Amino acid sequence: MIRVLTLDQVADQLQVKPSWLRARCEGREVPFTMLGGSYRFTETHVEAIVQQYEQAPKARRARAVPQEVPRLEARTPRGPNRRRKTA
């Protein structure tokens, strides 16, 4: 005999909020069966939901190799009372 689970049971099993699962059902984003006007799920449905939202781990990025920063040279300071000549 096929075991049928309620929305609350599946939400608890998947550790998600029932409202999250209900929204996915209403949007027809996850597999379910409608029995007596309520969302019902089989173990196959639950496994499909887990596989649907499974994500592969991202590859680690290599660390950046520090590059030599060019040094800036200071210019000679102007005197406090020295003004530019205007033509």
Rank of each mutant, 00 (worst) to 15 (best):
P18G: 15
T76M: 04
L14K: 07
K85F: 05
R61M: 11
V16G: 02
P70G: 05
R40Y: 04
L72S: 10
P57E: 07
R28P: 00
L7Q: 04
A64P: 11
T42L: 09
D8H: 05
P80S: 03
A62H: 12
E54W: 00
R83S: 10
V4G: 01
Q67R: 15
D12T: 15
Y39G: 01
E54D: 00
V69F: 06
E47W: 04
R28M: 03
F32K: 02
A87T: 06
E54S: 03
R22M: 15
L21W: 09
V46K: 03
A56G: 03
N81F: 06
L35Y: 09
R60S: 13
V10I: 07
T33N: 08
R3H: 07
T76E: 10
Q13W: 12
L5N: 07
A48K: 00
A87P: 13
G37T: 10
V65A: 15
R82V: 07
Q9Y: 04
M1H: 06
P31Y: 01
R24M: 14
G37F: 10
R78H: 08
E54Y: 08
E47Q: 14
R71E: 13
V30D: 00
F32L: 08
Q67F: 15
R22F: 07
Q55S: 02
A11P: 05
P66N: 13
P77G: 01
C25K: 00
E68M: 15
V10N: 02
R83L: 10
R82N: 05
A62I: 09
T76N: 04
E43G: 13
F41L: 12
L5C: 10
R60D: 12
A11Q: 13
R28W: 00
A48E: 00
S19K: 14
C25L: 07
Q51H: 13
V4F: 11
L14G: 03
